[in-house]
Design a protein around this nucleic acid. Structure first.
Lengths: 122, 122
DNA sequence: CCCTACTATATGCATATTGAATATAGCTTG
DNA sequence: CAAGCTATATTCAATATGCATATAGTAGGG
């Protein structure tokens, strides 16, 4: 079942950064949960503080929303993997997040700047 | 009752951006809930998508953690206000968030950059 | 004086999200 | 065949959230 109001990205909803990073990784290349977990370090998610259970749940949620699709694949070694690919809908979603990310980056910069300014004064 | 492990800021825990913004606003100047809500627009929180109930609860949570303190104050007009001030502990917490914010800003930049690069190629 | 609207804070409730632990199972190595 | 790794998934309890509503003082119009 898909979300009916697809790309209403509220600027402050950045808890969803994990979802966006996953879409980005899958935009570059298909991947499966366990490997994606390691790739997430690029975006500051460390394996120690990452919750693997949450990662799998997030991937399934993205699939429920139709942003990614998955197939079971035999591994050359080790157990089968559920390999995810981004969908057209997922690409559109990622695209729609970019302005929000820009905005958030600016806001964080502003906050850092105003903090610096205050310490300078004191 | 205060949190026993005070400043363990996990990098991905940026849902807490609201808390950080509130600490920043209160670092600059004391303030009360209703007015802080409007000031939050500086950091991208719009009144429409802001949940006023959540804001008050967040302020109380910060107070429980000892990061802010509050007193009731008569207003020159209108009902009484619970005016919040940042505590020393709150200042330390804000300070400890700055490196995390820098990191997050960098990560967001990276994500935007890699997105741009991919679209260019296609 | 009464009605309405606004300022201001707070809570109740149902739902959503999360962390931590555990389950399941196949594969690999000795 | 036992231990350890890869890989996915689920359960449960604790938190967090959105939305609606409660409370109450103040202000202005009629």
């Amino acid at each position: 079942m898909h979300n009916e109001q697809p790309f209403a990205n509220k600027p402050q909803k950045m808890e969803r950064f994990l979802e966006i990073c996953l879409l980005m990784l899958l935009y570059k290349q298909v991947g499966y949960g366990y490997a994606l977990m390691e790739k997430l370090s690029i975006y500051g998610f460390t394996p120690e503080d990452m919750n693997i259970g949450s990662l799998y749940r997030t991937l399934r949620k993205l699939e429920d929303q139709g942003l990614v699709s998955s197939v079971w694949e035999e591994a050359t070694q080790g157990p089968k993997r559920r390999v995810y690919a981004i969908t057209e809908r997922g690409k559109e979603s990622l695209h729609s997040w970019i302005p929000t990310l820009r905005e958030r980056k600016t806001r964080i910069g502003q906050l850092i700047d105003s903090y610096e300014r205050i310490i300078m004064e004191k």
